[in-house]
């Protein structure tokens, strides 16, 4: 019986590896020049649910492509953090822009699917695996 309990406990310990955290700074900083790009909307990040976050999100259109630029950006770290662009505050309908590149520093995301940006007034940093919102920027 003791052996069985040991095997069970060992299996649970092996099964509970911590998730990979997001890098502190972007590993591949973008060199896209937004000097001549059209800034469509802009908003400030606020932390949600007790998480700390700050920075600015700017939506750009450049050469037929659409981008979100975080510049600057800072938030708490967490597992499986994703960037969403959504139609409402609760992200009931959203575009999954990509994995959060880093918890600090300037970062550039290309928005997939060429959406109508007027329909998406919120940027979220969302812990997808645990369904927890970390930060939100209402865009104006």
């Amino acid at each position: 019986m003791k052996t069985l309990i040991c095997i069970l406990l060992l299996s649970l310990v092996i099964a509970c590896n911590p998730e990979d955290a997001t890098p502190i700074t972007p590993t591949n900083p973008s060199d896209i020049d937004f000097t001549n790009a059209v800034a469509v909307k802009e908003g400030m990040f606020v932390g949600i649910g007790g998480h700390t976050a700050s920075g600015t999100a700017i939506l750009y259109e450049l050469s037929g492509k659409k981008y979100i630029v975080f510049d600057p950006y800072s938030s708490q770290n967490g597992p499986d953090l994703k960037v969403y662009l959504s139609k409402d505050e609760k992200a009931t309908e959203y575009i999954r822009v990509g994995k959060l590149m880093a918890v600090t520093g300037r970062q550039v995301y290309e928005i997939p699917g060429n959406p109508d940006l007027s329909q998406y007034p919120f940027v979220h940093v969302w812990c997808e695996k645990f369904s927890v919102e970390f930060a939100r920027a209402p865009l104006m």
Partner: peptide, 13 residues
Amino acid sequence: SANYINGFTGKIT
């Protein structure tokens, strides 16, 4: 609460 994921789009439901 569930997160429906379809490629690069999704819905919270």
